[in-house]
Design a protein around this nucleic acid. Structure first.
Length: 462
DNA sequence: TTAGGGTTAG
């Protein structure tokens, strides 16, 4: 008996609910098989069906997998809607593909699909995270001009973006404005504020906001506590940080690997390897999905223990599990190899990183420079420095210290001046080493030049 | 569908 249109629509709705549940549980392949069966039974998939699959594919395999779903939906005569584009833009954002996110937004406008607040939020988020705050502000302006109402997410994204762009004070003012104007301020807003204030060094303000949160109806969650914990570790309140972690653990509030990775890396930094290992076990037992950050934390721990074979075994496990090593992985391995005196192997890691087309990884290079300097191979270190696309304070601190240690004060003063000229800086101890070295050998001309460069850089910074 | 975790210098 033929089914009525209403019956078909109902069946499609049920199908969509089932597919969404499967996709949530990570069963995209199973969802695809069910869709094939449904089509065979004469059940027509609609835009929601495809959007559900698209979001899951995008999350699991990336943007191109999402675009493949768009082609399939077009072939089936189903037109993409705003949700389709929003998922694609979010998929591009997740993998840092800013230009593609912008292209998708343009395509959306060209095809006559009106962007909603989610489209704007996703695009703003992407632009802030990739370091383009000015473009993100323009997107916000465009959104208001087109009469799309900002949502709570919009404000939270703006606050986070202001912090990322280094405008902590403006973020704080905006937060107060949102409160005064009765605009949505929720737990995500509080967490964004506490995190941003901590990271920008405004711990006092972070404390004020945290206390305020305690007086609201919003319950602090695991994100709040992980943020506070990290802040404690950052500012030397180790025991308080550990206590925060233990209260999360004992209360059964941990639902993912974030608190574990935070506490493990703090313990490793302190050299408390036994406890770090114990929490690693707990993290693995908890059944939380282990992502790059987890593996990197574990690899770093093994490196610090001097167990390089175990570290590479973990790298292998990570890759077999479908994860790709990232810039952190490489820096950790290069550092581990250097610290074990295997400089040649470290150089090989850097080459393979370059071969992979990974963007210039300053930290990995810095580790190599530091190791070369510590083994008195300063000329090799200088060569590495020249091959770097980007240099920072760490680069120059290591080199300047290294040059001073071998008594090459003229060269050290030259690199110190280059560093200041580039807008970088070195640790005070490195400056002292150069000045006292130049004094000891009587290089008055260099001493004068360094002092004037230091004076100029202080002026420019203030 | 916005918030939290992972690497380097003294």
């Amino acid at each position: 008996m033929a089914r009525s249109r209403a019956q078909l629509a109902l069946s499609t709705r049920l199908l969509n609910i089932g597919l969404a549940a499967l996709c949530r549980g990570g069963g995209v392949d199973r969802a695809e098989l069910i869709l094939i069966d449904a089509i065979r039974l004469g059940l027509p998939p609609d835009v929601v069906t495809y959007n559900t699959l698209l979001a899951a594919h995008c999350r699991a395999a990336g943007l191109d997998a999402g675009l493949a779903v768009v082609r399939r939906m077009r072939d089936a005569g189903v037109s993409p809607d705003a949700v389709t584009y929003n998922s694609l833009i979010a998929g591009a954002a997740r993998r840092g593909l800013t230009v593609r996110a912008l292209d998708l937004f343009d395509e959306m406008l060209r095809s006559g699909v009106a962007p909603d607040s989610w489209s704007y939020n996703a695009l703003m988020h992407c632009l802030f995270r990739s370091g383009h705050p000015e473009d993100a502000y323009r997107v916000f302006a465009d959104m208001t001009e087109r009469g799309v109402a900002p949502s709570a997410t919009t404000y939270n994204t703006l606050l986070d973006g202001l912090f990322r762009a280094g405008h902590a004070t403006n973020a704080y003012r905006m937060f107060r404005y949102l409160q005064r104007a009765g605009l949505p301020v929720g737990i995500v807003t509080y967490n964004t504020m506490i995190n941003g204030l901590c990271k920008s060094g405004k711990v006092g303000y972070a404390r004020i906001v945290l206390r305020e949160l305690g007086r609201t109806e919003h319950a602090p969650n695991a994100v709040t506590y992980t943020t506070v914990m990290k802040c404690c570790f950052r500012y030397g309140r180790f025991d308080q940080g550990l206590e925060t972690f233990l209260s999360l653990l004992e209360g059964g509030y941990i639902s993912d690997a974030f608190p574990y990775t935070t506490v493990i890396s703090a313990l490793v930094k302190k050299g408390r390897m036994q406890e770090a290992n114990a929490y690693c076990e707990l993290m693995i037992q908890s059944g939380s999905r282990l992502d790059n950050a987890c593996y990197n934390t574990l690899i770093h721990m093994r490196c610090q223990e001097g167990k390089l074979d175990d570290a590479f075994e973990l790298l292998n496990m990570m890759e077999v599990g479908g994860l790709e090593s990232d810039e952190y992985t490489f820096s950790i391995l290069v550092n581990g190899l250097c610290k074990m005196g295997q400089i040649e192997a470290a150089e090989k890691q850097i080459w393979s990183m370059e071969m992979m087309g990974m963007q210039s990884n300053v930290v990995a290079y810095n580790c190599l420079i530091d190791a070369l300097c510590k083994s008195h191979e300063v000329d090799a270190a200088i060569k590495v420095l020249h091959s770097m696309k980007l240099r920072d304070d760490f680069t120059y601190t290591s080199l300047v210290h290294g040059l001073c240690k071998v008594g090459r004060y003229h060269m050290a003063s030259k690199f110190l001046r280059i560093c200041l000229h580039e807008g970088n800086n070195v640790l005070a101890s490195a400056k002292r080493a150069v000045i006292s070295g130049l004094r000891s050998v009587g290089f008055k001309n260099d001493l004068r030049k360094v002092r004037s460069a230091l004076y100029m850089s202080r002026l420019l910074r203030s």
